[in-house]
């Protein structure tokens, strides 16, 4: 856990923190609605829908890591799956998307389920 002293020794750019987390949240809320459309078309019900959402959300984060984080993070000496170059906490990166997009997912899931099975 970094202390106040660590932040004074190696300061953090707040603008970049805001920019990075906003990029990730935008992607996650957008893709959550998309997964809702997919789950509604497939006609998933109860736990299978949430399982679909969890799998797809983890896949999104992995793909985002591979496309945006890994190409510059790994050459700069970070280990694989280490996001400390761009995000302050790994929990924010890896699991933050599950709650960010859940409402949008359920909204479009129910909508498209109702539309397709009219």
């Amino acid at each position: 856990m970094p202390t106040e002293r660590d932040f004074q020794i190696s300061p953090v750019v707040q603008d970049s923190v805001v920019h990075n987390s906003r990029t990730l949240i935008n992607l996650q809320s957008l893709t959550a609605s998309l997964f809702g459309v997919g789950a509604g078309i497939l006609g998933l019900e109860s736990y299978y829908g949430f399982l679909f959402y969890i799998i797809c959300s983890v896949l999104t984060t992995l793909l985002f890591y591979v496309v945006r984080v890994a190409p510059t993070s790994i050459p700069s000496g970070k280990a694989a799956f280490d996001t400390s170059r761009y995000y302050r906490s790994p929990y924010e990166f890896w699991t933050g998307g599950l709650l960010n997009g859940l409402a949008g997912f359920i909204l479009t899931w129910t909508l498209f389920y109702g539309l397709v099975r009219a």
Binding site: S10, P11, V12, V13, D15, S16, V17, H19, N20, T23, N26, L27, L30, T31, L34, C56, L59, T60, L63, F64, V67, R68, V69, T72, R85, Y86, Y87, R88
Partner: peptide, 15 residues
């Protein structure tokens, strides 16, 4: 999903 991820903005280092 692939298209949306490729369309995201590049990240900036926080340190």
């Amino acid at each position: 999903l692939l298209g949306l991820v490729l369309n995201t903005r590049p990240l900036r280092p926080i340190q």
